[in-house]
Design a protein around this nucleic acid. Sequence first.
DNA 1: AAGCCGGGGTT
DNA 2: AACCCAGGCTT
Length: 370
Amino acid sequence: MAGKQKKALTYTLPEEFHVFGFSRDLLAWYDGQKRDLPWRINRDPYRIWVSEIMLQQTRVETVKPYYQNFMEKFPTVEALADAPEEEVLKAWEGLGYYSRARNLQSAAREVKTRYGGVVPDKPDEIATLKGIGPYTAGAILSIAYEKPEPAVDGNVMRVFSRLLLMTDDIAKPATRIKVEHLVRQVIPEGRAGDFNQALMELGALVCVPRTPQCLTCPVFDYCLARREGVQEELPVKGKAKPPRPVNLQVAVVRRGDRVLMNRRPEQGLLAGMWQFPMVETDADTPSVKQQTLLDGLSSRFGQDAEVLEPLMEVQHTFSHLHWNMEVWLCDWIDGGELPSDARFVTLEEISSLALPVAHQKIVEKLKSDR
DNA sequence: AAGCCGGGGTT
DNA sequence: AACCCAGGCTT
């Protein structure tokens, strides 16, 4: 067990970095320039929590309307814990990364039962809640409870890369650990929440990815990258793999004024969301594509249909996938009992289901055609 | 360590 | 078109 050496001691700040002046100047700037955001009206841990989950990999301006709506529908931990999962998913529709919504509700139920409805303020306890990782734990603990914990997100990684002229690959988990150690040494007494938010605010407004606005930066004097003129070369980040193409045949099966929809599995991509039935195929002729689709409808749902005409093509890109969807208008012919994860619904009923954006595009087309 | 998991804004 | 966003979970 002697193989692991303690690395924390190697994460020391440069001698020329003036911690006190930096914290003072950054906080002064934050006090004057911070944005007026809906989750900053108080320090209710639940409100902070919901905001931090929504803000994971999601821009502030995107989150705002979702946050307002979500807090109206689920104003407390208990309200969220007691809500039907489908309602939570619907409130999350379009926001992406839907496991965030499921984990948030699961964790709310945990907080209600295990912690009496009070979001825990201990690092060990809050870190066990679903959907709360190192960043979110630090954010809630510092912002809501003023605990001196780091909250290192993409903004903070970028700011520290430039500030301390770090050339570590910020895509690697080890780099986040390193930055957490550094931030921990810089958090000012009694202002952990504001300090963490100030670092993120700086990254969002001034120390932006492409062309940092160094001339208006409140901590210009402390920035080692700017001193060397290499601020635009940082941070270093490994390239992501391009999305993998997936070819899909999609069926809009009409039966009177209703269409066939099915619910996706509880796990995996777009878990639990509703969609038009579709099958993956690399077939390259229209007849084979159509037959593959009709065979799928028959075997998967026990419904017989015929293809009337091609309706539209939809392309949709995810982080790791690129969907090429060919949508066919079909007429229902015959069928038996549907499985429990499939239903014929009216266009009005569709609006109460949570749909991926790719399938919302099809709904819009159907509405415009009728 | 690498892959999976959405959708949209910026440059 | 490429990059990135107040990341976390699974393998």
